[in-house]
């Protein structure tokens, strides 16, 4: 049976379940809105390692082993790991995978990687290629900052539209089963470039991609946005969220009542991070620490989880290119 629907979507005939999740966060995130929800909060942003990159690898490794332990399985039971981060050549991920010793596919979708890895994981499981898959991502404020922007100790003023890269990692164990929240459908995004060039305004750059994917999902699967209890985008922040609501209003749809952005769910207002959270771990931390327990407890029944990524590099913006963006959506239902 063909599982493709419409232009960009798939529905799963045997929907895989999310068996367990784990999230580990940095100290600032640990004091934020989701305080108390993380499996582990680090005391500082090095966790005893001599550089931030090693700390990021440690976070991912820790998230994966914790999630696998919570799922009741052993690492050896995991058929595939699908993982990614923000760093060049996925180094945080590659070093985390070195010690985990399981078959692994590295994915780069910038901050959309959590949704991307869950989607591909669900396809592998529904396709009968394995029984247990782990999807995981990480991001670290300082590793991202030094790669994409300035040295962290440089005294520059961040604009109010800027977002703060989340220091955290999240991991999800997926398997073929019946008992748990199911991944029922997914929509693969296409690159949308609305011509935004300033890498400080990533939320606004990604908002049109999120709108395009959600819109396409509705068309392909034949559902209204109101079908979902909540639609969550990954890391658009305050400004991006407002833009998504406006762009949908222009299409004659009001999504303001059942729409939230993960980037607005991590930090408190008084943490002075300006427009919200960003990074792979923005959507991953919210999904793994907060949304999954809500779904497992039946407090949320149907969500659309939309990972959003801005796929620029330092080279591309120095060459004055605009920011190509992508969004991937997965529907998780109890």
């Amino acid at each position: 049976m063909n599982k493709k629907r419409g232009q960009q979507s798939v529905v799963f005939s045997i929907p895989p379940i999310l068996k367990a999740t784990a999230a580990i966060a940095g100290p600032m995130e640990g004091e934020g809105l989701l305080a108390g929800y993380y499996d582990q909060v680090m005391e500082d942003d090095l966790a005893g390692y001599d550089n931030w990159e090693k700390c990021e690898s440690y976070m991912m490794e820790q998230a994966v082993t914790t999630a696998v332990k919570k799922s009741g399985h052993f690492m050896m039971d995991i058929d595939f790991l699908l993982a990614g981060d923000l760093l060049n050549q996925l180094i945080a991920t590659n070093f985390a995978m070195r010690s985990l010793g399981r078959p692994y596919l590295g994915l780069y979708g910038a901050c959309s990687t959590m949704a991307e890895s869950l989607m591909i994981g669900a396809m592998l499981l529904d396709g009968g290629f394995g029984n247990k898959v782990v999807a995981t991502v990480s991001s670290h404020h300082n590793t991202a900052e030094r790669q994409y922007r300035y040295p962290t100790e440089l005294g520059v003023q961040r604009p109010l539209v800027a977002q703060w890269t989340v220091t955290a990692a999240g991991a999800v164990v997926m398997e073929n089963g019946t008992d748990g929240p199911k991944v029922t459908a997914a929509t693969i995004g296409k690159i949308i470039d609305a011509g935004i060039k300033d890498p400080n305004t990533m939320g606004p750059a990604m908002a049109p991609a999120a709108v395009d994917t959600i819109w396409q999902h509705i068309q392909d699967i034949g559902r209204e946005p109101a079908y979902y209890d909540m639609i969550y985008t990954g890391d658009l922040g305050k400004v991006g969220k407002e833009l998504v609501i406006r762009l949908f209003r222009e299409k004659g749809i009001d999504i303001s009542r059942n729409y939230e952005d993960c980037g607005c769910m991590i930090y408190r207002e008084d943490q002075d991070i300006h427009s919200g959270a960003s990074g792979c771990a923005s959507s991953a931390a919210v999904l793994c620490a907060y949304l999954y327990p809500q779904l497992a407890a039946g407090k949320l029944k149907k969500i659309l989880f939309v990972g959003t990524g801005s796929l620029h590099s330092q080279t591309s913006y120095q060459q004055k290119e605009s920011i190509p963006c992508i969004a991937h959506a997965i529907a998780v239902e109890v």
Binding site: A194, P204, L243
Partner: peptide
Amino acid sequence: TFNEQYQRMVDEIKPKPT
């Protein structure tokens, strides 16, 4: 034209520097 309109929308919503 979409990009131009969108840029205007972004400029309108973007928080102004204090």
